[in-house]
Write a protein that binds this DNA or RNA. Structure first.
Lengths: 279, 279
DNA sequence: TTGCTCCTCACGTCACGTGAGGTGGC
DNA sequence: TTGCTCCTCACGTCACGTGAGGTGGC
């Protein structure tokens, strides 16, 4: 016979926990005084309490613990729950290991350059239906790109107006190596919804999804975009990842004053996340 | 200029999260319509949102994120927070790795014997001040121990009564190899508080703390305790741990009917937890 | 009377998800 | 009129910790 206090001491749990387990029906005291409400426990109940403590420590919820201690649960079901927990723990460890690598990379970056606070996020990019035009540029530097992409967007805007197309998002630029010979294809695109392919000069294509894109924001004139591109590349390198192509540029803010522009760079990564560096 | 919906889509967060960040002052919209309450965001705010998302993903709380994005935080403080998170993540991973090993051990035990549900808990044992008597037994099996320990407890009880000592817990038995020659010392002890060493025949000693004890409950007569002892030993072995001595026995319930006895076995383990088997 | 143990509410935690109930422009 | 987006409460989540306010036996 134990009072709640001594039962709690023997079981290495708090009195509050015993009251909670009583409240949810997980571990009822052997008796409760009907007038004072005092709870009484028996030594034999320590077995159940120990089971609860152990399963809780493995990370099961009290609901799951209740299920597992239910006598009607079969060994097969029990195995299923253990397997599930095993998988969850593995996922948790993998996630934390990745997080740990990112924290370590941030610390290293902080040593190198205490002022850098590049926010690079890895996220999936959804596919987008776009209307687009393209042309060939001789190189990837802004001086080569800008004179090509500007007129493309101007022309495309005009054509979309004519077509009464429904622009559904900010303009997007993307790049490909030209099919034969040198130079790169510069594509200017606008997301649209519900517009048929017409005779207005532009193509309608679906930009494919990107499973894992490293994204960051560029602020200001596109003349200075190479600095942001290189910061992004360094970040990708520092995190043991690898680029899988040219980045897309999403012109989130491209008002009249180019100094206020905000452009998201989306760089596709190889599908494999970096193999965890062993600690 | 973004509505809350499009800002949420670009930032890959939910509208609810943006409202929440507004409410706690972490990310205020660029403007709110005073009559309708409609929020408006600017493209430039995506930078801050991305920072938030990234830091959150590393496991920082929103409070911490707010602190880290505060311009007045120094690189040294930032490094401190990253170091702290690094340590937390390492501890988390170690804990989960240990949990995973235990889950795996349970699964193996389930394959071997689907009926076993031995609840073995590893916990620290506090030091206890006890009054005790001891004698020598010829072996560790119940047939050798019982005839020695019974009279010891009977004598000790009587002496404590005479001494008006304050018994502060259930009786405890523990064992040691006899100083010279064979046989083992059988100690019978009662926790007491505030009783001076006297002339009543018993010793007062402090049973040392046990940093890590594997504990389980034995139900029923002590004649059958060897089965429980062996189950405990198998558990310890299966978890890659090692015993560091004889177990203590705490007689939680030792009423007149021995079939209802409940005895906790506390087996000291080597201080080093088992080295994690690599996955 | 002071201390100790016990009791029952009931709030707070953390970062939102999820209705409920209502509004404003196409 | 129907759909869509937006709004503000406000409850629920999970396993308790932590008072608040009160009782009963030494």
């Amino acid at each position: 016979m134990f009072s709640i206090g001594s039962f709690a001491r023997h079981g290495r749990v708090s009195v509050r926990m015993l009251r909670h387990y009583d409240a949810i029906g997980l571990l009822r005291p052997a008796a409760s005084d009907p007038t004072t409400g005092y709870r009484t426990y028996e030594a034999g109940q320590l077995a159940r309490l120990n089971q609860i403590v152990v399963l809780k420590e493995l990370g099961f919820s009290l609901q799951q613990v209740a299920t597992m201690l239910d006598t009607s649960v079969s060994p097969a079901e029990l195995r299923g729950m253990l397997r599930l927990r095993q998988a969850e723990l593995e996922a948790q460890i993998d996630g934390d290991t990745a997080r740990l690598a990112h924290v370590a990379a941030r610390l290293r970056a902080l040593e190198t350059d205490p002022t850098t606070t590049a926010a690079v996020a890895i996220k999936p990019i959804e596919p987008v239906r776009v209307a687009q035009l393209f042309a060939i540029a001789t190189g990837f530097e802004p001086a080569a790109i800008t004179p090509v992409v500007r007129p493309l967007f101007a022309a495309l805007s005009a054509q979309l107006e004519t077509a009464h197309a429904n622009v559904a998002g900010p303009p997007i630029a993307y790049y490909r190596d030209a099919d034969h010979g040198d130079g790169i294809e510069v594509h200017a695109a606008f997301p649209i919804d519900g517009c048929d392919e017409g005779q207005f000069g532009f193509d309608i294509v679906e930009l494919p999804a990107i499973e894992r894109a490293a994204t960051t924001l560029h602020h200001g004139s596109m003349d200075d975009v190479m600095a942001t591109v290189q910061t992004l590349a360094r970040w990708i390198d520092a995190h043991g990842d690898r680029s899988a192509g040219y980045n897309r540029e999403v012109y989130l803010d491209c008002g009249p004053n180019e100094a206020n522009w905000v452009v998201e760079l989306q760089e596709p990564l190889h599908t494999q996340p970096p193999k965890e560096t062993h600690r």
